[in-house]
Design a protein around this nucleic acid. Structure first.
Lengths: 207, 207
DNA sequence: TGCCGGGTGGCACTCGGTGTCACTAACGTG
DNA sequence: CACGTTAGTGACACCGAGTGCCACCCGGCA
């Protein structure tokens, strides 16, 4: 089925192709009906494959939403490794986050769909913690290199988790707002973080 | 079975009693064999109840580890509500976190066991995100009150997520270290956060 | 005595995820 | 051409987390 042509398409990885088809089908079903409501069989049917094949391409239903997130983490790691030492640490992390999330305009709708699911569906929120752990590890190692501390010391860990918190918060406001760009939201969040939340020190007014 | 005595023990809530027994049994099994390795039937057997009753007392295997976390969130909310307005916002949040996590010395071993599981077992890390969401909501509402912003604006959300990141990081170093107190770790993390990570601005030395 | 309500156990069921095996198509080599 | 190899696949059985349902037991109450 769907064996379109025989020589028209070069078959580099059959696997990567089915992965993409599954992802697309899953994302659409999730967006329409909700993550928990969609069963693995339904995704398999929609993608024209068997349930078993689905779980061979994605270890988890949730992984079908995250897509090629591992590649993003690798890219983040490379960007951080290429950082110049005279740049402030937080600025280098912010720049890396912005760069990694610099999507082309035509990819933004899919990104919105994906992030709305990840940030909105409880089951996906839960799963995200595991993926974030990889990000945190990469960032913590970067901070450790820059400060000469151990990667599991307080400061590297803290910088990693709070910058990631800033990034996800930026994603949330970007998703909810719709008028600002993702880069602007990221910069705003990192600025608050780097300056110790100056926004907290200016209450309405203090008599 | 285990119907010890008839009048010796006043039965205020049968449910709360079995909850406690289940929790104890589950925590011990998890600590010994690992969270994923222990089956719900085994916990039920160890606690002397049926599998069905286990899932009536705890909606999830993970919930047996978290115990009465909802009560902690409620307490955090009350503490934040009772905050004086002339105290800096971050300081009030830090104080509330310290207060909520001010365990008696005899409870520390159980706390260590519990937190080692929550922070170490991937399945529990994932589940934790859902519980943290409640904490974040409470803190964000506090910040929103103090700053006059909407609870879902950037700053309240950001402060909530990054202070919670600071708290969990403090828990991690406290757990790994063993020499510092939890309160000290929390204060150290919040201080870094409030001052914009001064530790980042003093690299080994800059020639 | 009979009724009632909460805690319980047993059972069947759904669904996510895994291990295993057989099948098929593509490929290189004799 | 026949052959073995390999990757991708589908079918099936299986495990474990949860859930819905019903029957049971027991203490309280009219």
């Amino acid at each position: 089925m769907a064996q379109d042509g025989a020589v028209t398409e070069a078959p580099p990885d059959v696997r990567a192709d089915t992965r993409a088809r599954i992802q697309q089908a899953a994302l659409e079903l999730f967006a329409r009906t909700g993550f928990e409501q969609v069963t693995a069989d339904e995704i398999a049917d929609a993608a024209g494959i068997s349930r078993r094949t689905f779980f061979r391409c994605f270890a988890t239903k949730a992984d079908a939403v995250w897509g090629e997130f591992g590649a993003h983490v690798d890219r983040l790691e490379r960007l951080l490794a290429a950082t110049r030492d005279d740049q402030p640490v937080l600025a280098s992390i912010c720049a890396a986050y912005v760069e990694v999330n610099d999507y082309a305009a035509e990819d933004l709708p899919i990104l919105r769909q994906r992030m709305a699911l990840i940030l909105g569906e409880p089951a996906l929120q839960a799963h995200s913690q595991v993926r974030y752990a990889d990000v945190d590890r990469v960032v913590a190692e970067h901070v450790a290199r820059r400060t000469g501390q151990a990667p599991d010391a307080l400061l590297p860990r803290l910088v990693a988790t709070s910058t990631r918190a800033a990034a996800t918060t930026a994603f949330e406001v970007w998703l909810a707002d719709g008028t600002t760009t993702l880069a602007a939201a990221l910069h705003a969040a990192f600025e608050q973080l780097a300056l110790g939340f100056p926004g907290l020190r200016t209450p309405p007014a203090r008599p």
